[in-house]
Amino acid sequence: MEIIEVNQNNFEKEILKSEKPVLIDFNANWCGPCRMLKPILEEIAKENDSVKIASINIDDEEDLADEYGVSSIPCLVFVKEGKEVKRSIGLQPKEAIEEMIGE
């Protein structure tokens, strides 16, 4: 699966009402570690059909970042049935992310 860009308009549909669990990647273009994380997430997205991976740009979507209390990026939030179950901050190796989403 591809990484889905999420904004205020599709947030409810893609995250809150998603049938699959969602791993949200809060990121920004100027954030080096976020850019390092992106290819890792792309790989996981490709290899994995049971989890949806969503990208939220914190500069464009300040309200969504606020809603999740994000104050450090990269920040990964794992959401099941609309509710946050796990969170990690900072660049993570692939294994740690796979563990987070329960592979």
């Binding site: 920004a28 080096g32 104050s71």
Partner: peptide, 16 residues
């Protein structure tokens, strides 16, 4: 960490 404590101003400054 990530709730007010940061070790990288250029990474997290924008949130403040």
């Amino acid at each position: 960490i990530g709730k007010g404590i940061s070790y990288c101003a250029t990474c997290d400054g924008a949130f403040y």
